[in-house]
Amino acid sequence: MNDEIHTLSGAYALNALPLRELGEFEGHLSRCETCTIEVRGLQETTARLGVAVAEAPPRALKSRVMAQIAEVRQEPPLIEEPPGEPEVVVPLRRRSGRWALALAAVSAAAAVSIGVVAVNEIRSRDASIEETRNLLAAPDAVVRKVEMVGGGSATVVASETYGKVMFTSELPALDASKTYQLWTIGGERIRSAGLVDGGGVRTATVDLPAGTDHFGVTVEPAGGSRQPTTEPVMLAKVV
């Protein structure tokens, strides 16, 4: 454990870290179990500091909140890949497009192992703002602007420390039988990172599995695919 960074647990629990250190510390937290346990205890403590200054709000607040939640869709639960789940290994058909070119550069072995497809609906824009902020603050954040096939561009921000990749672009509407699908590609593995609909600017922040070197987007049949079945409309290097 790095003592210097470990002393930030108090400032973190008090939300007193500047953005740069916030990303760094959260990256550290994801790898340090002792720190995670300490932070939880300190957050339970700060919560009590909050409870101690309780003050009743105006009654009208409740009706405003209840009216608003009636119109706000809830995030679905995050589906995590169960650990130890056997993975399906399928051969990657050789392709002539950018997909194959990039992958060839990554790995000579033309085999792709696909994890359990975790299809998460993208988080709403509000949630992305905080994540984006943390992501950009990560010391190893990589920011790329890449061309989209068919015009326009996409911005991809990735941080291995923070363990997230963010994608944002204007995505043309697709007909109902199709969807955009996000992929993280690391060495020999391509994993689904979720589905995104088209028809406007879309921002998605998804987990970046360790060892990921590319992030791609394809158009797939509605419901998504276990492996990419079309040429990518966008492919970005994330290391």
Binding site: G50, V51, V53, A54, E55, L61
Partner: peptide, 10 residues
């Protein structure tokens, strides 16, 4: 809500 509001107001 009283805890939430009190903290935010603080």
């Amino acid at each position: 809500i009283a805890s939430v509001f009190g903290l935010i107001r603080r």
